[in-house]
Deep mutational scan, measured.
Amino acid sequence: MVQRGSKVRILRPESYWFQDVGTVASVDQSGIKYPVIVRFEKVNYSGINTNNFAEDELVEVEA
């Protein structure tokens, strides 16, 4: 279970941040499909630095 402030590695192959490390900004408990919002240092092609992920697409590298 990841929690706010954890450092996580992204396992979603189609993601711009695949294999990159980001910080968990928040975790939604309402039961949505992609409840974990992760914030990154670098921006993607659209200038965005956050994205939603499912918990099984993340691996915690640092608490």
Rank of each mutant, 00 (worst) to 15 (best):
M1R: 15
M1F: 13
M1W: 15
V2I: 15
V2Y: 14
V2C: 13
Q3D: 02
Q3S: 11
Q3K: 14
R4N: 06
R4C: 12
G5W: 02
G5N: 04
S6N: 06
S6Y: 06
S6P: 03
S6Q: 10
S6C: 14
S6D: 08
K7E: 03
K7W: 07
V8F: 00
V8C: 09
V8N: 01
R9A: 04
R9Y: 05
R9S: 03
L11G: 02
L11Y: 05
L11S: 03
L11T: 06
L11M: 10
R12N: 09
R12M: 04
R12K: 08
R12E: 01
P13G: 05
E14W: 13
E14H: 11
E14P: 01
E14Y: 12
E14N: 12
S15R: 02
S15V: 04
S15E: 03
S15Y: 02
Y16C: 07
Y16Q: 03
Y16T: 02
Y16P: 06
W17N: 02
W17Y: 03
W17V: 01
F18M: 01
F18I: 04
Q19V: 06
Q19E: 08
Q19M: 15
Q19K: 09
V21E: 04
V21H: 04
V21A: 02
T23H: 04
T23D: 03
V24G: 01
V24N: 02
V24W: 02
A25W: 11
A25V: 15
A25I: 15
S26D: 14
V27A: 03
V27S: 04
V27P: 01
V27Q: 02
V27G: 02
V27M: 06
D28Y: 05
D28Q: 08
D28F: 06
D28E: 09
D28P: 04
Q29D: 12
S30D: 05
S30V: 04
S30A: 07
G31E: 10
G31H: 10
G31C: 14
I32Q: 10
I32G: 14
I32P: 06
I32L: 10
K33F: 06
K33S: 08
K33V: 07
K33P: 14
Y34V: 03
Y34E: 05
Y34P: 02
Y34I: 01
Y34M: 07
Y34S: 04
Y34K: 08
Y34F: 11
P35E: 07
P35T: 09
P35G: 09
V36H: 01
V36K: 00
V36F: 13
V36T: 00
I37Q: 14
I37D: 02
I37R: 14
I37A: 13
V38D: 00
V38W: 00
R39I: 14
R39G: 03
R39F: 12
F40Q: 00
F40T: 00
E41Q: 10
E41F: 08
E41W: 09
K42F: 08
V43M: 13
V43W: 11
N44L: 05
N44D: 14
Y45Q: 15
Y45R: 14
Y45C: 15
Y45G: 14
S46V: 10
S46G: 09
S46E: 15
S46Q: 15
G47N: 05
G47A: 04
G47S: 04
G47I: 03
I48K: 12
I48Q: 15
I48R: 09
I48D: 13
N49T: 06
N49S: 09
N49A: 07
T50D: 04
T50W: 15
T50P: 00
N51C: 15
N51L: 07
N51I: 07
N52A: 15
N52E: 08
N52L: 05
N52V: 06
N52K: 07
F53I: 01
F53W: 03
A54W: 05
A54L: 05
A54N: 09
E55D: 07
E55N: 11
E55V: 14
E55S: 09
E55M: 15
D56P: 04
E57N: 01
L58C: 07
L58V: 11
L58T: 02
V59C: 13
V59Y: 08
V59L: 12
V59D: 09
E60D: 05
E60A: 12
E60I: 15
V61G: 03
V61E: 06
E62W: 11
E62Q: 11
E62F: 13
E62N: 11
E62D: 12
E62H: 12
E62C: 13
E62V: 11
E62K: 11
A63S: 12
A63N: 12
A63E: 12
A63Y: 11
A63M: 12
